[in-house]
Amino acid sequence: MLNLLPLIQNETLKVWKKKRFYVIVLILVVLIPIFTYAQMKMAQSSEDKDWRSKLLQQITDYQNALSSDRIPEEWKTQRRVMVQQLQYYLDHDVNPNSPNAVTFTRGFLDNSITLFIPLMVLAIASDLVSGERTTGTIKMLLTRPVRRWKVLLSKAVTLTLYVSLIIVTTAVLSYLLSGIFFGYHGWNQPVFTGFQVQGSAVDSSQVHAVPQWLYILMQSGLIWFSAMTVALLALMVSVLVRSTAASIVTMMAAIIAGTILANMASSWHSAKYLFAVNLELTNYLKGTPPPIEGMTLPFSLLILAAWSAVSLIVSFVVFTKQDMMN
């Protein structure tokens, strides 16, 4: 009956007026210059050297590590893959770390996909429903002539909007702020993608160069996908758990557990079905070996989509049937 648009307007307004998004922007504005400064220091310390000799140095370091007996086999695999990738850049005379705002943005996005972006998403998703229950406003919300599924749908749409906004804001802010130090160029610098990791070898037959702007676009899309999975799971937890604090802690624990598992569970194969292990989608783009053998980009997308679908179903079924006791 009633159009969804006014409901979405309500929800968007409430998140905005709660000043959650301001906090997120504030965190970004504080953190990005810190990382930029660190990056700049790093660049300065080796300014005297040519990037080629730096890359060669790095390759030699990795190879030395490979010959050591004390390094576990998994690490060696990773090192071998990295050596081959660096070699590829060297062969094609492309500097993978040339300091500019676009490269910084690419690196920042890569590193923020596991914890930083999910954390910001949780700041908004975790109290969408539980927050209204804690304050009791849910009673006012659900005694309107509006079906409950519409209320929840409007919240889910609002969440999608904010997740997208968070990712765009992160990318734009990191470009604008790091550009102050590094300069705003680098859009068309080539990045190699398409490395196929098979065991300890890298198949570079599929490798092709894409301009950095396109790479960032692809990256953002994957980050959006993984962030949406986190958001929808958080929405479900927010429906199931009455307290916002409990809801945030539950989700944070799941995500952190996932990143820890990704580092140590390479021999526990069924762990690859856990959502948190699959969040690092951008690694497929970069060509880093997956945490568990047999994981591929389509596989991870499928797993995340399945988790999202299940959490949406649970959220809607529970929310529409639930007795609102307080």
Binding site: K14, M140, T143, P145
Partner: peptide
């Protein structure tokens, strides 16, 4: 129209914004 237990409204909105919010949920 109802007030169940306490009148719970959004503290971070103004009175007017609260009313607008609920008005959007009614024909």
């Amino acid at each position: 129209g109802s007030i169940v237990e306490n009148p719970e409204v959004y503290p971070y909105l103004t009175g007017w914004e609260n009313l607008e919010h609920f008005a959007r949920m009614m024909p």
